[in-house]
């Protein structure tokens, strides 16, 4: 356990030194506040951009507050996922590619500690960034439109966070497989896209797919109740995370560390 904390602390220090602790939260905040603000100012934006004939009356129904928070989550589903894959794809693959893993792993380092410490480090960064981002979105929705009960926000936050954790774990899993961060990134993005597309088009067959979590979060925000499939979906996603982590450790153990 002592070794695990040494590895974990190193991840924390590295993320501080290369400013991940700065730019990732900022990116999540920007993505989070984008939709509430643009939605609120849309009439003015259209007005000032011009191009509309004189006398046009712009009338837009104000969308309900939960829909706007959901728009932010929709953005995380795209840009957030992209950022997560980008910051995670080199965590292990990069160390192996550069060769520093060759120095670290000839020391008596447990492979499971090595992988889970990196996973936990990434997870902490993502959850903190995602929390401040969604909190900013919730705040702007509150002051510009209508306040959503904080309890609802917290529930939505934790629910959708499961999907982001799942994406991160998929990326860690591919890290154990491939030596090149680019390939890891591609494989992870491809997996997420395929999973989302298939779950979206065959939603009646795959209602337990982790990719449904975003949709279920939206449903909860507007109706205050989760669909029945939410519980099995959560269990499946958490099970998937555990399975992928164990898989990553087993694969990594078998891999040759040097080229």
């Amino acid at each position: 356990m002592r070794q695990w904390f040494i590895l974990f602390n190193k991840e924390m220090l590295e993320m501080a030194r290369n400013f991940k602790w700065v730019w990732v939260p900022i990116a999540f905040i920007l993505i989070g506040v984008m939709d509430p603000i643009t939605t609120y100012y849309m009439p003015q934006i259209l007005d000032s951009v011009g191009g509309l004939p004189e006398g046009t009356v712009i009338e837009m129904p104000t969308p309900p507050a939960p829909d706007i928070l959901m728009m932010s989550i929709g953005q995380y589903n795209m840009f957030g996922v992209l950022i997560i894959v980008l910051i995670t794809m080199g965590l292990i693959a990069g160390e192996r590619k550069s060769g520093v893993a060759g120095i670290i792993l000839v020391k008596p380092v447990s492979f499971s500690s090595y992988i889970t410490a990196k996973w936990a480090g990434g997870l902490l960064l993502v959850w903190v960034s995602y929390f401040v981002g969604l909190l900013a979105s919730w705040y702007y929705v509150g002051i510009l439109f209508k306040w959503i009960p904080f309890g609802d926000f917290i529930q939505a936050f934790f629910t959708y966070g499961i999907w982001l954790s799942f994406v991160l774990t998929v990326t860690i899993f591919f890290n154990a497989f491939f030596r090149s961060p680019g390939v890891v990134g591609f494989a992870s993005i491809a997996t997420v896209i395929v999973l989302s597309l298939v779950s979206g088009s065959l939603s009646h067959l795959l209602e337990w797919s982790p990719a449904q979590i975003a949709g279920y979060t939206g449903e909860f925000l507007s109706t205050h109740s989760f669909p029945e499939a939410m519980l099995p979906t959560t269990l499946l996603a958490v099970g998937g995370i555990v399975f992928l982590l164990i898989g990553a450790i087993l694969v990594f153990r078998k891999k040759e560390l040097a080229a």
Partner: peptide, 22 residues
Amino acid sequence: PQHPIFYEWMTGREFLEYVGKL
């Protein structure tokens, strides 16, 4: 290794201490 690679963002002392603790 033939071409040793380290964590460039660490100082020499930090790296040795890290490896020693591991």
